[in-house]
């Protein structure tokens, strides 16, 4: 752990550390359970697990404030749990049940929560980036100081629309944090084979967007970088880029044989860099938690996840009438002027 920026003297309270530990562990256990349910045929289609990348969303959600927005790609379960969406609702969406966030009509890749300001869950690589800039556009238009986190991967970073969004965000000083979750593989293509630079965040420089590389296996480093980016955006200085170097332990999706990297490479990351182990060590070495405390947390998380799996299995499939609902919204305001809400 010697390479970690914050390893020396973490300026963080025991409660915060414990919360990070819990939040990351919840994502990991949830995703492991999702993988199991997929294997049992209870989850269909594509299912992209977040295992290994937990510190990214947990660190950034710790930096986010009330009313801030987030939008991401199809590898979205972790983001939903981290922003406070219910594990039951997420898992039941994975199984395509009535109790799911989209009542079973969205699936793993397409979930939303207006209440938690989670704007998806987008299945088209890179599409969430201009959408995120647009959410920030709306906040700037409405005159509030909210910030939007637009997450995308190193693969999406090669989509043209990302740079269209960079340009307009810089031009119009939109309060958006572009979070490049660089897990080093765009499906099966390594960054080396697909991307002209080792430092993707530097691609913001020609647009005048500041950015930095962050160790994504260290939740404290992510939180610190997130605080800085949020402050920049909230102050009206325009967009900011965080390239967060991370690693996904599982395949791109459940059907990925992962022939493009060695078992040893994955094993080495897990053993030497695991973000959850890192916090666990800090808790123990700092005297913030005993092994028994940690066991109790593990059990608490396991219970939540098991409950969500039970809920997702027991929740009925959507009623057949659901096929025909939510295609069009029907509340067309007529006549009277609309009140401005900001």
């Amino acid at each position: 752990m010697a390479t970690r920026k914050t390893a020396k003297a973490p300026n963080v309270s025991a409660d915060e550390l414990k919360q990070y530990y819990k939040d990351m562990l919840l994502i990991r256990r949830f995703e492991e359970k999702a993988g199991q349910l997929y294997g049992m045929g209870l989850i269909g289609g594509f299912c992209h697990l977040y295992i290994g990348q937990e510190a990214v969303v947990v660190g950034l959600e710790a930096a986010a404030g009330e009313g801030d927005k987030r939008v991401t790609s199809y590898r979205d379960h972790g983001h939903m749990l981290a922003c406070g969406m219910e594990p039951n609702g997420v898992m039941a969406e994975l199984t395509g049940r009535e109790g799911g966030y989209s009542r079973g009509k969205g699936g793993s890749m397409h979930m939303f929560s207006k209440e938690k300001n989670f704007y998806g869950g987008h299945g088209i690589v890179g599409a969430q980036v201009p959408i995120g800039a647009g959410l920030a556009f709306a906040d700037r238009y409405l005159g509030n100081d909210r910030v939007t986190f637009a997450y995308f991967g190193d693969g999406a970073a090669n989509q043209g629309q990302v740079y269209e969004a960079f340009n307009m965000s810089a031009l119009w000083k939109l309060p958006v944090i572009f979070v490049i979750e660089n897990n080093q593989y765009a499906m099966g293509t390594s960054q080396k084979r697909s991307t002209s630079t080792d430092e993707i965040y530097t691609r913001g420089a020609p647009f005048g967007i500041p950015g930095e590389m962050v160790d994504g296996m260290d939740v404290l480093a992510v939180k610190e970088a997130g605080d800085k980016a949020v402050a920049h955006c909230r102050a009206g200085k325009g967009p900011y880029i965080l390239e967060i170097k991370t690693y996904r332990y599982r395949g791109h999706s459940m059907s990925d044989p992962a022939k493009y990297r060695t078992r040893e490479e994955v094993q080495k990351m897990r053993e030497e860099k695991d973000a959850i182990e890192h916090v666990r060590e800090l808790l123990v070495s700092g005297g913030h938690a005993s092994e028994d405390d940690l066991k109790a947390i593990d059990k608490e998380i396991k219970d939540i996840v098991n409950k969500s799996a039970d809920f997702a299995k027991e929740s009925p499939e959507p009623a057949l009438e659901e096929l025909w609902t939510d295609i069009y919204a029907s509340d067309i305001p007529q006549g009277a002027a609309v009140e401005q809400d900001a």
């Binding site: 709306a138 409405l142 031009l171």
Partner: peptide, 19 residues
Amino acid sequence: PITEHGFAGIAVGAAFGGL
């Protein structure tokens, strides 16, 4: 700017965001 893909996406985000 001349950037249809980008500004259409921004407008969709703005619509999600209440505009």
